[in-house]
Design a protein around this nucleic acid. Structure first.
Length: 658
RNA sequence: GCCGCCAUAGCUCAGCCGGUAGAGCGGCGCAUUCGUAAUGCGUAGGUCGGGUGUUCGAGUCACCCUGGCGGCACCA
């Protein structure tokens, strides 16, 4: 007999070979009907799977969180079945569940069309209606390989060949159709439900390797209920509205054009945003003990040969030849330049840690297909810095960096989800012993800062492991911003050294670190995080003074001048338009504050402040308005320095009027 | 770079099976001076990303190039 322990703690005995469905039926017939999966000691199993051992046991219906992944996986199989019915001769490969949905990769000479997608989706729904039972079978390895080969499924045969010897080869039958799969699966196609939708068509390399043939991938989304599906589609729509490329155009922040792929034309408002962020970063870095430097944009090929970049990254560098025959390259990164400054003259251990920052403009020839708005560009400015330190200073430096970065990210409304530790990749420089040590240092430092990193196997740079910050924005999407790497290789390669207490020369360790990543990308993230409705301190235009009638023009100009004198970024709108029209226009332009001035305000020397997103007004005397807004527009670091909490400042003074 | 899709006024988009381009918003002009999310009327903008071909005739079909988008690969 086997013992099953239920979630309520009760324990019951069953015959070995009993199925999850039998167990459910012994509790209640309705439960047997609803059951789509069972969990035995944390492992998900088919409900029809005979149980050979006991353990902690749970019966899951389709609303269980764990069921969703299986539903998605099943829908991907239904997709594959539909495709093979409609397009005989198409080979199936793999089709996993992913975040929000699933995909399936097919090998077929003819490309699928968008129209095909609609047909396939229709057929998938028919397959669900057919209620085909899904059953697990264990096959003999050699027979399985021979079988899949014989039916022309070369990819499946290859997959089986790659499965470790001790693992059983399982095949799931789904009506007439079958697929190699580890499982688990739902009891029938009907259990998958119809809350799914095919979303996109894409190419994808077999086994993720660009040397392999390209397969056709069909993506879909699948949910436990129609309501969830609709909510998801709505979320996607909301995210599209925040697209920084769209908002960048609407708000006149920047543009890009054909002749400069991956290069940004920053317009006045976009540059204002940039400079605001830059000024903030300068203050934060200065407070944290960094010095700022600037290194050459273009350096001789010989320099990059020494640094090793020529050898490793030549195809991705912008290179030019001069009339005198020199070969020069635009810098793809700042580190070698910083080492030159470090090595200029002699450095003592007393100089360490030396934190050297540069808002460094770099150029990298990124593959054309990688370019994406501001997120991936060919010319970008990093908020770069290198901390030269002794080995025993690494942990402290990394830990305080984590604190600094966290504080900065939060000032921009981004909350940390987690930090990843990218470990040794392949290929890589250095011995395993080196990597053991370097990875341990980062782990120690993270823990010292109170963070337990999530390990991302093989995600490190080739010369060093790294910590990456994963942030969440206002609508829950995650972004990677900020990184730190402990590099022993480059300082050695470029001969950086310092004189230690012992009078001997030592090699410093170099911590490469960025908090924003690049200004381009970070501003893109900010635009999407705030959907263009920036907090007052960041907003390119902070106040628009809008008149109701031309009688108020003079006062409006005076008010604008005073607000500017108080340090605010102000525009005026004296056009002969109705106030409704102006309010609408400036609200759509995401202006945080509209200062309305009519005859009444002009006579009384007041302004009526209207905040974006609220329809109330705050009528204040001009002086008071200047004070309130200037205080409110303080960057968060300065507000903290003055003992103000930016979030609550400005709401205290003045009366609300409907 | 690879696979697929797309490319029409400043913006968003319509233009069916080929017969020489439309709308809304925006712009400009005139009128309106009107208290917190769109005042009315009028008017000017495109030869349809570039090229080749098919055709009596192409925005509309085919092919090539360029670029954009969605993925894949890449991301020091």
């Amino acid at each position: 007999m086997i013992d099953l322990i239920f979630p309520d703690g009760s324990k019951r005995e069953f015959e070995p070979g009993v199925t999850g469905r039998d167990v459910a039926a012994s509790i209640a017939p309705s439960l047997a009907k609803r059951a789509i999966l069972v969990k035995l000691d944390g492992e998900l199993l088919d409900v029809e799977r005979p149980l050979e051992r006991g353990g902690r046991f749970e019966i899951l219906d389709r609303n269980a969180p764990e069921a969703l992944e299986t539903i998605r996986h099943d829908v991907s199989h239904i997709l594959a079945e539909a495709v093979q019915e409609l397009f005989p001769g198409t080979q199936v490969t793999i089709g996993p569940a992913i975040e929000d949905g699933f995909y399936y990769d097919f090998a077929r000479d003819e490309p699928f069309s968008l129209d095909d997608l609609a047909r396939i989706e229709q057929r998938m729904k028919e397959i669900v209606d057919r209620d085909e039972p899904i059953r697990r079978e264990v096959w003999n390895r050699q027979e399985a390989i021979a079988h899949f080969r014989s039916i022309g499924e070369e990819y499946k045969a290859q997959i089986i060949e790659g499965i470790p010897g001790e693992e059983p080869i399982t095949v799931y039958r789904q009506g007439q159709w079958k697929d190699l799969c580890r499982g688990p699966h739902l009891p029938s196609t009907k259990a998958a439900g119809k809350a799914f939708k095919l979303t996109k068509l894409a190419g994808a390399y077999w086994r993720g390797d660009s040397n392999n043939p390209m397969l056709q991938r069909i993506y879909g989304t699948a949910w436990a209920s129609e309501a969830d599906l609709e909510a998801y589609l709505k979320r996607v729509e909301e995210a599209e509205k925040r697209d920084h490329r769209k908002i960048g155009r609407q708000m006149d922040l920047f543009h890009m054009q054909e002749e400069g792929r991956g290069m940004v034309f920053w317009h006045e408002k976009g540059l204002t945003l940039w400079r605001t962020v830059e000024a903030y970063m300068r203050r934060r870095l200065a407070d944290a003990g960094y010095v700022e430097v600037r290194t050459p944009q273009v350096l001789d090929r010989v320099f990059w040969e020494k640094s090793g970049h020529w050898e490793n990254y030549r195809p991705n560098m912008f290179v030019c030849e001069t009339v005198e025959g020199e070969e020069l390259a635009l810098k793809p990164m700042n580190c070698p330049g910083h080492i030159q400054i470090f090595s200029f003259g002699q450095k003592s251990y007393r100089d360490l840690p030396l934190r050297m920052a540069e808002f460094g403009a770099c150029h990298r020839y990124e593959p054309s297909g990688a370019l994406h708005g501001l997120m991936r560009v060919r010319a970008f400015t990093q908020d770069d810095a290198h901390i030269f330190c002794r080995e025993d200073q690494i942990v402290d430096e990394v830990a305080s960096f984590i604190e600094l970065a966290t504080s900065i990210h939060e000032d921009f409304g981004l909350v940390r989800d987690h930090i990843t530790l990218g470990t040794r990749p392949n290929p890589r420089a250095g011995t395993d012993a080196f990597w053991d040590m370097a990875e341990a240092q980062l782990l120690d430092a993270a823990r010292k800062a109170g963070v337990e990193p999530v390990v991302a196997e093989g995600d490190g740079a080739f010369y060093a492991p790294k910590l990456d910050f994963q942030l969440k924005d206002a609508i829950g999407r995650s972004w990677t911003c900020g990184t730190i790497q402990n590099d022993y290789v480059l300082p050695d390669r470029l001969g950086a050294e310092f004189v230690g207490e012992d009078g001997q020369k030592h090699k410093p360790v170099m911590l490469h670190r960025a908090i924003l990543g690049s200004f381009e990308r970070f501003l893109g993230v900010l635009i999407e995080n705030y959907a263009g409705a920036f907090p007052l301190w960041l907003s390119p235009v902070q106040v628009v003074v809008a008149t109701i009638t031309s009688d108020a023009d003079d006062f409006a100009l005076k008010a604008a001048a005073r607000l500017r004198a108080a340090g605010l970024r102000v525009e005026t709108d004296l056009r002969n338009e109705k106030i409704n029209y102006k309010i609408r226009e400036h609200s759509l332009a995401k202006t945080p504050v509209i200062a309305v001035v009519g005859r009444r305000e002009a006579e009384e020397g007041k302004v009526a402040l209207r905040r974006l997103g609220s329809d109330g007004q705050q009528i204040l005397g001009l002086d008071e308005a200047c004070n309130v807004l200037a205080l409110e527009a303080l960057p968060p670091d300065i507000a903290r320095g003055r003992g103000h909490d930016a979030a609550t400042v400005g709401t205290a003074a003045g009366g609300e009027v409907g």
